[in-house]
Write a protein that binds this DNA or RNA. Structure first.
Length: 813
RNA sequence: GCAGGUGUGCCGGAGUGGUCAAACGGGAUGGACUCAAAAUCCAUUAGCUUAGUGCUUACGCAGGUUCGAGUCCUGUCACCUGCACCA
């Protein structure tokens, strides 16, 4: 059967009749979303198909269950690859992107996905990115978008700063040979840390998220409680964060980050040269090597005053202190921190033990980092670490020398990109007024069509038409910001735009957004655990606080699908030559076959390998089903089949709901295997069960048996508990057992002749009903069933005496 | 270093305290059908044993909890992933 041809037919009909387009209504909604793709030049591969199929099955199931299902698709179409392609081909990235999207759409349509295409969004269109800019202005207004100078990741091949996730093992994700440099630049940030607590605590409420993702996010946000302690340096107060205030008396030096913005103010004239040399040396070190560096530092020449002992403590600049965590400076307690210990050894700084396991001092060959009992700590001696933390902090608070505080590992989100193909940041720099936001009515700030790429530099910098602008405040000549936004900004709220994609006046209609959103089930890979899935939560909370949303979390249930590998078990990639394209599989077997195969290998959250032999298996099954149902004899469903159908409806419904697609397929296989004569209604039910998985074949068979309308829009079958009878399963077991026994004995006897089976009278009918099956499965043509009380039975060995329930006697002749 | 995950027959994988663990698929072997092949159907696929449903072994390894463990706990090994000088 040419499934491919048949699939085209149904895809066209679905599209023509717009059956997957939905509107807000009184019906209960259900929002199924798969993470939208970046439309790359190479198109979709089977891994994408896997992702979308998982969502499509759920969407089709929910739709048939009667929910008003929104299942949209769009394109995350800003980004570097399009720009690089444009540079190479001397064209505009828009052209490249539009072509890629066209290709994606046609490929996705071939997968038979039940999207509402009328809701498509494309993030690189001005109608969309206008609202990125609008959100930026709102963030700016609330002080949550700001510019600061800090050390950032820089790729010299891409010529831009990068997000942390675009740095892999210290190298750029696109340029394996390009080591990431740490540069100090003035950049735009979104203040994600403003919501750090809520982002952290909110995870508890996300019951339908995988624990692994929640843990990743918790680690990423990394909340730690501690104290901030004020040290005085050159008559200025420097707060320092620590989680170990109990070791305060062991502080023998301070270390300030070599990248600290105010480092200069600490450096004395005679140390200036040494410090400068040190900082310079460090700036040439790549991100990859930075963690391999030995702990090094240089004395700044300044001394701090210990808040409690009033001792003089030297201040060093060090390479192991982060500028953007805590206060960018640490109090070093070499006796109780391994890094500080190494540093102290190297520079011959005293090591003072203040915590001890047994309450006595002992020699250390490495730092003692466990909690213990305080010594050498004045009036705090003999307290254990836990109490000491509280008491010392109390003392500091009372003397106004510190406070209790918490710190996050989460950094504010660096969103500037020194590239062209992204959302322009709506900011104007005016000589008189400084940094001025564009006014809302001037949005969108469009990317110019007329551009010239010079090498890999951002062409906006040369584009007068774009660059030169009047200051909205004073009207004088100003200059536009030429950096664009990280593409993750676009993807942080796209799920809301689907609810009202064509709204030209507002980001979205409030009532529409709050009807459709939040997303009920969101499907995608776990590589987004700490980036996209944090940003989308951040944006949701911000938009809520603007009064636009009535919920706190964007995604109710998150599902992480596994990764599809090539047949060799490696990640699918062009260079490895193991990429499988949906088109080619579709042509050979039909896309329904591929869909079925992808989800029957394993639970969809597991990584799987493509397998040519495996798809043959799915193909065999579907061909069998197609043949069988095409030539089916409609009639009556017997009780055995009715039991099976009802049981399957029950179980498959549960399996789909909980993403046990692989188990659902097993049950469907078994169901279709046992269909012979069946009523029209029951056959319709069986096809409905198949339809979310293999929608085209199901539509075709549906129309063949005279089903009403589209099966895709039909009502999901209900099961009748009273028709489920476990008796039939038990009977099957009896037959299995008997077949086994007969085969077993036959093998020992070495001959297959007449077989006499002796069973209990009440079991006789069951065996008689299945005698033909017995014959086929044992390969023995003469099988006679006797009840033990049959008078004229042939039983030379008196086997019938040993017969027990479910345990027939067997005699071979 | 920190955090998380995984480890089950020839292979992919079901199975998370209890009817004899291995569903289902794939592969292999044998058989039926066929002149033959493909397709289809049936059987076998840890070991021993027996004219039968019995025994042994077995869920990475070692312990433990339990009447009972693949499943829970502790330790350990291997592999994978993420973060990584976070004070």
């Amino acid at each position: 059967m040419d499934f491919h041809k048949l699939e085209k037919k149904w895809q066209n009909r679905w599209e023509k009749e717009k059956i997957f387009e939905v509107k807000k209504s009184k019906k209960e909604k259900y929002y199924v979303l798969e993470m939208f793709p970046y439309p790359s030049g190479s198109g979709l591969h089977m891994g994408h198909a896997f992702n979308y199929t998982i969502g499509d099955i759920l969407a089709r199931f929910k739709r048939m269950q009667g929910f008003n299902v929104i299942h949209p698709m769009g394109y995350d179409s800003f980004g570097l690859p399009a720009e690089n392609a444009a540079i190479k081909n001397k064209s505009h990235p828009k052209k490249f992107t539009e072509d890629a999207i066209k290709n994606y759409i046609s490929q996705q349509k071939e997968l038979g996905l039940s999207y509402d295409w009328s809701r498509m969004v494309t993030t690189s269109s001005p109608e969309y990115y206008k609202w990125d800019q609008w959100i930026f202005l709102k963030l700016f207004e609330k002080g949550l978008a700001y510019k600061k100078t800090s050390p950032v990741n820089w790729c010299s091949e891409c010529n831009t700063v990068l997000a942390n996730e675009q740095v892999q093992n210290g190298h750029c994700w696109r340029h394996e040979n390009c080591k990431i440099k740490i540069k100090k630049l003035n950049q735009w940030f979104f203040k994600t840390t403003e919501y750090a607590d809520e982002l952290y605590d909110g995870l508890e409420k996300l019951e339908k998220w995988p624990n692994s993702i929640k843990k990743l996010q918790k680690n990423w946000i990394g909340r730690s409680f501690g104290s901030e302690i004020n040290f005085e340096i050159n008559n200025k107060t420097w707060p320092i964060f620590t989680t170990r205030p109990d070791t305060l008396f062991g502080v023998t030096f301070l270390v300030v980050s070599a990248q600290h913005n105010e480092l200069d103010s600490l450096v004395t004239d005679e140390q200036k040269k040494k410090v400068e040399k040190f900082v310079k040396k460090l700036s040439s070190v790549s991100a990859e090597d930075i963690d391999k560096l030995e702990k090094e530092g240089v004395f700044t020449g300044s001394y701090a005053i210990h808040p409690l002992t009033k001792e003089k403590i030297p201040v060093y600049a060090g390479n192991f202190v982060l500028a953007d965590y805590g206060c960018g400076m640490v109090m070093a307690v070499p006796a109780h921190d391994q890094r500080d210990f190494e540093f102290a050894k190297k520079y011959d700084i005293p090591i003072k033990t203040v915590v001890s396991q047994i309450g006595k001092e002992s020699k250390l060959d490495k730092a003692f980092t466990n909690p213990g009992v305080l010594i050498n700590s004045g009036k705090f001696n003999k307290l254990d670490s836990e109490n000491a933390k509280t008491e010392i902090t109390k003392e500091l608070i009372s003397k106004k020398l510190g406070k209790k505080t918490k710190n996050f590992r989460l950094r504010d989100w660096l969103i500037s990109r020194q590239r062209f193909w992204g959302t322009p940041i709506p900011i104007i720099y005016c000589e008189d007024c400084g940094t001025v936001p564009v006014s809302e009515k001037d949005l969108p700030i469009k990317l110019p069509d007329n551009i010239k790429f010079k090498g890999s530099d951002n062409p906006l910098k040369e584009n007068k038409e774009f660059l030169e602008v009047k200051c909205p405040k004073c009207g004088k000549v100003g200059k536009r910001e030429t950096d664009t936004m990280d593409t993750f900004v676009n993807s942080s709220w796209y799920y809301l735009r689907y609810s009202d994609p064509d709204n030209a006046k507002k980001i979205f209609d409030k009532s529409k957004a709050n009807y459709w959103a939040p997303v009920d089930t969101y499907i995608g890979g776990n590589e987004h655990a700490c980036m996209h899935l944090i940003y989308i939560r951040f944006f949701t909370k911000f938009l809520r606080d603007l009064g636009l949303l009535e919920f706190d979390e964007p995604v109710v249930r998150l599902f992480n699908q596994g990764m599809l590998h090539g047949e060799d078990g490696d990640k699918m990639s062009k260079s490895k030559g193991n990429v499988v394209l949906p088109e080619s599989v579709s042509k050979e077997y039909g896309i329904d076959t591929a869909r079925l195969f992808l989800i029957s290998i394993a639970s969809p959250d597991k990584d799987i390998d493509w397998d040519t032999k495996g798809i043959e298996g799915s193909s065999k099954f579907l061909n069998k089903v197609f043949e069988k149902i095409s030539n089916i004899k409609l009639g009556k469903t017997d009780a055995r089949l009715a039991s099976k159908i009802n049981k399957t409806i029950k179980e498959v419904s549960e399996d789909i709901e909980s993403f046990r697609y692989n188990l659902a397929v097993i049950k469907l296989r078994s169901l279709f295997d046992s269909i012979e004569e069946i009523s029209k209604k029951d056959l319709e039910s069986a096809l409905k069960l198949l339809s979310p998985f293999c929608p085209h074949i199901a539509e075709e068979l549906w129309s063949k048996i005279g089903g009403n309308g589209f099966i895709s829009l039909s009502k999901w079958p209900k099961f009748d508990e009273s028709k489920i009878n476990e008796k039939f399963d038990k009977e099957d077991e009896l037959i299995d057992k008997l077949v086994n026994d007969i085969n077993n004995i036959a093998a020992i006897v070495g001959a297959k002749k007449n077989v006499f089976v002796y069973v209990l009278p009440q079991e006789k009918q069951t065996y008689l009903d299945n005698v033909e099956i017995l014959k086929v499965r044992t390969g023995i043509s003469d099988i006679t069933i006797y009840a033990v009380n049959d008078k004229d039975k042939k039983d030379p060995e008196n086997k019938s005496k040993k017969v027990k329930p479910g345990r027939p006697g067997i005699h071979f002749e």
